[in-house]
């Protein structure tokens, strides 16, 4: 397997996800399959091909520095499960 259980635990930890043992097994297999599939790209000969920074042949897409109206606060906070004093409220972040 190209992805180990330890790898999956690490990624789950970075993503703040708690996985059960069954999930851990399942994702280890699934992620290994995905990585193996993507690794097939490594077999392609890329001699003489320039590194790709973007898949489209575009560059310098800019906008002018001009202020436009922002959204109403109610609209911005509409999806938040919990809000207080005009802010999204989240569980205490321990520094």
């Amino acid at each position: 397997m190209s992805v180990s259980k330890e790898d999956v635990k690490h990624i789950a930890n970075l993503s703040k996800l708690n996985l059960t043992d069954e999930e851990l097994d399942k994702y280890t297999t699934d992620l290994s399959n995905i990585v193996d599939f993507a690794n097939e790209l490594s077999n392609i000969n890329v001699d003489g091909v320039k590194p790709t920074a973007h898949i489209l042949d575009i560059k310098n897409v800019f906008r002018k520095d001009e202020v436009d109206a922002s959204y109403d606060r109610e609209e911005i906070l509409k999806n938040a499960p919990s809000k207080d004093a005009g802010c999204i409220s989240v569980p205490k972040v321990v520094e």
Partner: peptide, 15 residues
């Protein structure tokens, strides 16, 4: 910016 709400103990998010 994260603001600590001393009253509720929650963290408030100002974007």
């Amino acid at each position: 910016k994260l603001i600590h709400d001393a009253y509720t103990g929650d963290t408030l998010v100002d974007m």
